[in-house]
Simulated assay, not measured.
Amino acid sequence: MTIATIDPHAASAMLAQGAQLIDVRGADEHDRERIATARNIPLDALTTIDGDGPIIFHCRSGQRTRLHAARLAAAGGPNSLVLDGGIDAWKTAGLPVVATARQPLDLMRQVQIGGGSLILLAILLGWLVSPVFLLLGAAVGVGMLHAGITGSCAMTALLAPMPWNRAVAG
């Protein structure tokens, strides 16, 4: 089952006519920045959407919705559409978003910053102190490879409960 795409301006017009907008990103992403009328139903919690009118799904860039198009079409029915380019395209089109700057960085960016920092540190220590420190960089590389293959990231599990990742109210 395929699902048609819609550009941000056409989606905005459909929303004004009563279409539903479903944000399939995680709750932390939605809390950080969202389209005002979007209802957050993370992709892993998506089953079926009630309603007779059109349903427009969106993510950050459109990649997640493209990858899971069949699942979205099954959940939303025959009136399902995908916002082409996601919230990024919505913002590029000059349409408004609600942003909460006080929310923490998303976990993927934290993992990228942490992993990159550890690899850089390992290279510097391996060069300046002892080549044994290069094993730290190798361990981070193996962890990233494992995360990519299995979809399970140990660094995310370590970072998620940290105090700075508690959602900020309001």
Rank of each mutant, 00 (worst) to 15 (best):
I3T: 15
M162G: 03
T48Q: 12
G26D: 14
Q63C: 05
A89G: 13
R39E: 07
I119T: 05
G53Y: 01
S12V: 10
W164V: 01
A36G: 14
A160G: 00
A10E: 13
G53A: 07
T48A: 13
D88W: 01
L43M: 14
T156V: 06
A93H: 00
L67M: 10
D106E: 04
P78L: 15
D52S: 10
I87S: 04
A16R: 15
A169H: 02
L15Q: 02
A38H: 02
A167D: 06
A74I: 00
T150W: 12
A101V: 06
G114D: 09
S130R: 11
D88Q: 01
L158C: 07
R102A: 14
P42M: 04
F57G: 05
G170W: 03
T100E: 07
W164Q: 04
H58S: 15
L159G: 10
A36M: 13
W127D: 00
A99G: 08
A122C: 14
G137L: 08
R166P: 00
A74L: 01
L72P: 04
L21G: 06
A38Y: 04
G51D: 10
A122N: 14
P96Y: 10
G151V: 11
A73Q: 11
A169W: 01
V168N: 00
L81F: 04
I87C: 01
I119G: 02
L83S: 15
A122Y: 11
G85W: 05
L21W: 07
A4R: 11
M14N: 07
V111Q: 07
H30R: 14
Q17H: 09
W164M: 05
C59Q: 01
R109H: 01
G77Y: 10
R71N: 13
A45M: 03
E33V: 04
L81S: 01
A157G: 08
V132K: 10
T92S: 15
P163V: 13
G86N: 04
L135C: 12
P104V: 02
G85S: 07
V97T: 15
L159E: 09
A19K: 02
T48G: 12
H9V: 15
S152H: 13
V132T: 11
L46T: 05
T150H: 08
L118Q: 02
I87M: 06
L118Y: 01
R60W: 05
G62N: 00
A99H: 11
Q110P: 08
A13L: 15
D44T: 06
L118N: 02
M155P: 03
A157S: 12
A75D: 02
R32E: 11
G26K: 09
G76Q: 08
G62M: 00
A16H: 14
P54R: 10
L134Y: 11
